[in-house]
Design a protein around this nucleic acid. Structure first.
Lengths: 164, 164
DNA sequence: ATTTTTGCAAACCATTTGCAGCTGG
DNA sequence: CCAGCTGCAAATGGTTTGCAAAAAT
């Protein structure tokens, strides 16, 4: 999966690991070594990833964690609001939620690139629409699908001069 | 799956079946009996459904079509822009695209109800954002998740008087 | 000590596919 | 006729789960 176009992180007082420990503590659960390995690895770089990529990545880094534990921990991290789950394809992709401003996505259907963007209008629209329908909104997902500039150029190359 | 709150259909000159036949013809493919059964059944009632419900529904109606054919035909109908695919859960749900205005969804996380709504602001926002990022938008998905009025009342019942 | 977690392998489950026979045009 | 389609059963592939051993508090 392509890296998202990066956005500026929000300053946080707690590390993701601390936040996870708190979350687990409240539920009487434990911050174990595999979980520590996972959360550190995941928050080491800001990018979108899926379970499979995570397993492969960890293996490369010599920090092997079993597939089941990866799946189980991903679910926990979503419940803890540390990660957000995206459903672009048939598999689940994940992105940082903690320490990042809320945002939405552009998805290029050609090259699969995912671009993040912030736009205040969306939240306003969401609130207006929810109000109108008697909903109490807890979240939203706004995904624009299309073709990015690079792929547009590839498909319908204008004048060769444009490329020089 | 709960029925969507209905919207007013758009008047169409061709039936879904005719539109499907044209689509198939262009690709040198055939409008067979199982496909006719499916498209008629699907466009008989405006509601969201998934592959499983469709198979069950057809069985009840005494019009059995094999699961494989259902899946294969659903894919075709999406390609033909007769249906739209939604990914609310882990399984794919479908809704009418042809003959219906483009719209988005509110999803109640308590009772699973899906409410459709139209809002011009979304398309404008989508175009503005796409332009800003050099994307050529081909579509979007805007899903507001929250709690509907009925469920809100169930969870935090105010005064009994409100209900009388 | 007791409860939770891990890793493995097996199970799950929605969806896809190979294939032999059937069907539409 | 002949390409495309169907239904069946088997395969696929991402994700979940049962269980015995291991680890955390």
């Amino acid at each position: 999966m392509a890296d998202p176009v990066a956005m500026t992180p929000i300053p946080t007082t707690e590390s993701p690991e601390e936040k996870f420990r708190e979350f687990l503590e409240i539920r009487g659960e434990k911050l174990t070594e595999p979980r520590r390995v996972l959360i550190r690895h995941i928050f080491d770089a800001h990018k979108h990833f899926d379970a499979d990529e995570l397993v492969a990545d960890l293996r490369l880094a010599g920090r092997q964690v079993s597939r089941s534990t990866v799946y189980r921990t991903l679910r926990l991290l979503v419940e803890a609001n540390l990660l957000r789950e995206l459903r672009l394809n048939n598999r689940s992709a994940y992105e940082h939620d903690y320490g990042y401003p809320s945002h939405d996505h552009l998805h290029c259907s050609e090259c699969n690139e995912v671009v993040e963007f912030c736009n205040d209008g969306i939240r306003q629209l969401r609130e207006a629409i929810s109000l109108e329908h008697g909903f109490r909104a807890t979240g939203h997902r706004f995904l624009i699908t299309g073709v990015c500039q690079a792929c547009s150029r590839k498909r319908s190359p204008r004048r060769r001069l444009d490329l020089i």
